[in-house]
Design a protein around this nucleic acid. Structure first.
Lengths: 336, 336
DNA sequence: TTGTAGGCGTTATCAA
DNA sequence: TTGATAACGCCTACAA
């Protein structure tokens, strides 16, 4: 409520001094600074955001556009991610601006343009990267700072976090083949999705490592949502010899598979093994609970914000490309 | 990028005229207005948010604090709700500021104070109301506009949307009793939660209507999350005579129940009926799919924002207390 | 119907 | 070490 002017008046000093004392400039007497800080606190002074933004030509806002084709599809993956972004942003006194747009659509392009226009945001956070990603190309052109979960093939040098999907999937495959599975299916996502490429590669390498030959019949393409997992599983169940295990690009897809399996009277964990990727909360309480590759999404999101803040302030980062290993969580859906 | 000044200069007229032409004032010549609008568009002029906020003393921001005890618990309910808030906010050129805080905690109180301080937001959206709600009391005191999903017992007159939980539950109970169920359990949430009170009332009235006497043994208190549904179901299964049907305060709780049932070897839909409330996406793909009372959360959220906008601008609302009926969606978890 | 000018609360430049 | 002052971009009395 109270402005810097009132704080200055109360102390009988100039607003300049108050401003500089509060911002930690070195050219203000320590005694003055202490007094200013104390008084400002007492008076409940909080700098006016708009005034500061106007003067500094910064928005103190970061943007995240959820890549979902319909808002109803805002799934648990995104809520955990957004929660992490929001909490870390608050810590840095930044506003998080969230909106949604369908992946790789014109409206997505427009959404990004709108954020960049007039510097509505100081930086952006991306995830669900595509191999060749128009968002990256656009942001690189505009010069707006951004960070991403997963990297793309585009020429860019943003800070990023990458979960080693490929290695994760290989571990999962090793686990399944060790249990004697030979007919292992894979339900993926859109081909251009970075995680699809990596996880599929991990799947194939896992087959190789176990000396199992690749069978295209056992691969299905979904869209990372429950419904597509359900449909893909139905197709797999229509094969002459159905697979003994189904691995999925993510947990939501796996949830759809569980549904299809139960409908068909297959007891998952005994007749069929099912595994996902992400380790969202849901995976703990499916019937049966889901084996999955866990990635600490909330923490990842917080890290991305930290990286973005450094990037905006042009500070060096000790780790510009952060790499994490997902953790195999074994539950009953693969026989425990 | 370009400011109002440049637009004015280009046209050789004053800033004032440009400003007023763009804001739709009546005292500007129609020909001038057209010219201004066209030029502004050509030049890609977008009013500077910070400057406008500073001048108008508004933040053009609305706030929503998710009432979750840990960010990981940000569940599908909230993501659909937030998606609706975000999309409608964008339509009104408002920023949606999202954060999280544990229900009824000191940190929640502080979060609200922080939003209100210095008018960081022009209004707030609340949901998951408690019967006596400190958030409501606080906001009423400060005079900040707000709207809520569900009303409380506090003296307040905010615009609100209310889904008739009680009527919904009665319909569900009528459906279950008609199917011959007599031992029907109820797993609720914290006692002070408005939806708990309403849904529990609906449960009891439903028993009454069917001439079934209330049995406290069949009632359990959870916390609206999967885990608590799982635990409560385990307790119910330990009874001498287990219930033939379990109704739940929400879908997440019901998902926990499904998990417990499958663990115990109960075939839901045949040995046991289970029903939830909300109709989140998940409910379509549980095993088996869940009977639930559907409420159009995305639309509700959009309506709340519309109401808040009207409230902020002091415009009258044709319907200040909007009432909706949830829709019974019958799926296999109650035998189809 | 249009223009002049003051000020919203900060920060930054420059002088003292 | 401190202070006066000029912006930042917009809106709005008030004057013309």
């Amino acid at each position: 409520m109270s402005s810097i002017r009132e704080v200055a008046k109360r102390l009988g000093i100039s607003i300049t001094t108050v401003s500089r004392a509060l911002d930690g400039y070195s050219d203000v007497a320590e005694s003055t600074r202490q007094l200013v800080i104390k008084t400002a606190q007492e008076m409940g002074y909080i700098p006016n955001r708009a005034a500061r933004q106007l003067r500094r030509q910064r928005s103190d806002t970061i943007g995240y556009i959820m890549p979902v084709s319909a808002p109803q599809y805002a799934d648990p993956f995104f809520s955990e991610f957004v929660a992490g972004l929001g909490d870390e942003a608050t810590l840095h006194n930044l506003i998080l601006h969230v909106s949604t747009a369908a992946p790789d659509s014109d409206s997505e392009r427009q959404s990004y343009e709108r954020e960049v226009q007039d510097r509505k945001v100081d930086g952006m956070i991306l995830n669900r990267m595509r191999l060749h990603d128009r968002r990256v190309q656009y942001l690189v052109r505009t010069g707006l700072p951004f960070v991403s979960l997963e990297r793309t093939l585009d020429k860019s040098d943003q800070a990023s976090v990458e979960v080693d999907s490929q290695a994760g999937f290989k571990i999962l495959m090793a686990y399944l083949t060790a249990k004697g599975h030979k007919r292992i299916a894979y339900i993926g996502g859109p081909k251009e999705l970075k995680i699809q490429v990596d996880r599929f590669k991990g799947y194939k390498k896992g087959l190789d490592a176990a000396g199992i030959s690749f069978d295209p019949e056992l691969v299905a393409e979904g869209d990372t949502f429950r419904e597509s997992g359900y449909r893909a599983a139905q197709r797999l169940f229509a094969l002459e010899t159905i697979p003994t295990a189904i691995t999925c690009i993510n947990d939501l897809t796996a949830i759809g598979v569980l549904h299809a399996a139960s409908e068909r009277g297959l007891k998952v964990g005994r007749d069929l093994a099912v595994a996902g990727f992400d380790g969202i909360e849901d995976s703990k309480h499916t019937s049966p609970p889901l084996t999955t590759l866990y990635q600490p999404l909330y923490q990842i999101a917080r890290n991305l914000v930290k990286m973005l803040v450094a990037s905006i302030q042009n500070l060096p980062l000790e780790e510009r490309q952060m790499r994490l290993q997902p953790e195999l969580v074994i539950r009953e859906s693969t026989g425990g």
